[in-house]
Design a protein around this nucleic acid. Sequence first.
DNA 1: CACAAATGCAATATATATATTACATTTAGA
DNA 2: TCTAAATGTAATATATATATTGCATTTGTG
Lengths: 68, 68
Amino acid sequence: MMNHVKNARIEAGLTQLQLAENTGVTRQTISLIEKGKYNPTLKLCLAICYAVGKSLDELFWIDEGEKP
Amino acid sequence: MMNHVKNARIEAGLTQLQLAENTGVTRQTISLIEKGKYNPTLKLCLAICYAVGKSLDELFWIDEGEKP
DNA sequence: CACAAATGCAATATATATATTACATTTAGA
DNA sequence: TCTAAATGTAATATATATATTGCATTTGTG
């Protein structure tokens, strides 16, 4: 479940803890999502989008070519 | 948790049962998502996108103006 | 109208997303 | 180098997404 959350978070100047607080979840949850080890809910995906100023497609859409 | 799944499904000429089978979930799950009573996982959101040929933003992004 | 397909929805069970706590490791700055 | 902040990660607990079954209601078509 690859995504672009980590890059977007860093671009937004946020730490994992800050993003977690902004989105109402735990730092672990953010960490695992960034590592691609979680399958987040849509609600959380949207909260992350709002927090870092990106769209769902920008953060979570994976083109075939991007799959390792 | 409003979305545009129902319209997209109908445009794609699929029934709830067909979309459920294509995405590997139950018809109930599709029904509840369309009714906005569920908070689906990203994986399922992507499966629905692929099944109906739409992007995450097209199906699940809710503009402020759209909120009832 | 009659009949079948499609949909809504309820109750219970299961799988898994997320919380909580805690500790180890890495990274950045003085 | 030293230290604090940031990050990785594990164990257990809880909340909730999803499955399963079943039946009622709606919708379309002859």
